[in-house]
Amino acid sequence: MSRKTKKLLGAVGAHALIYLCLFIVAFPFLWMILASFQTQKDIMNAGKGLLRFTPTLANYHKAFWQHSFGRPILNSFFIGLVSTLMALLLGLPAAYSIGRFKQRKLSMLILLVRMIPGITFLMPWFSIFSNIGLIDTYLAMVLAHMLVALPFIIWIMVPFFEGIPKELEEAAWVDGSSRVGGFVRIMLKLALPGILTASLLAFIYSWNNFMFSLVLSGARTITLPIAIFSFISYASVDWGGLMAASVVITVPILVMSVFLQKYIVGGLTAGAVKG
């Protein structure tokens, strides 16, 4: 075999491998969507082949009407938004302070928050919150979800603030602006792409959060990842409904990812590349 054919074969192989990997990545999502339009009978008949079924909307109808998914959807949005905003309020000034004044020890404390297993503070929260009647309140849910968001915001924003030249801020002080004013008008404005990235990730992780909501929510504050379990009973699983619910949970995140991919990838890979 000549060098050229060998190289060509390598390229063909690499492409085949790439598309195979993409298929593996996409397949569970395809399966989820397909099954969400199938009756229980069609799902149970595994040998029928992927696309041979009569599509039905019954599962979605069930999710919204019988299992009243309206409330969990609103709750997930509300808790995600409020906790992200509150975490920004705490996290942005903190990230600025860490970045500008090189407070490495404090940045370690924040990193620690990410490392500690959530279960270690979940149990104390549960007993404290039960005692003061905070279980199944939006306050408790937002506080818990803020703790999910905060480390992401600081992790992403510290290098971002560090990257903004000090001179820009100092120019504002010369023009008579206070430091706080300079921070709000200059730094926050310049850091907007970073803030968008951090907020997106904070929201996604709040939306996806399961363990905190499992313990702290109730009938009033139930979020989507908890509501989905209503399709599973001891005796049987309503697979179609379960998959419809999975689609409902996943779609908002998928849409965000498609349109704001650049920012989300930027946030996920923050810290991967030096400087």
Partner: peptide, 28 residues
């Protein structure tokens, strides 16, 4: 491709678990 590769990372883990629960189901 880059969008697709992002999906498993951002998709809600509980929903991901449910889909795999179905795919792993021994009979169906």
């Amino acid at each position: 491709a880059q969008t697709l590769f992002l999906l498993p990372v951002v998709a809600t883990p509980v929903a991901v678990g449910m889909v795999w629960k179905l795919m792993y189901e021994p009979t169906i």
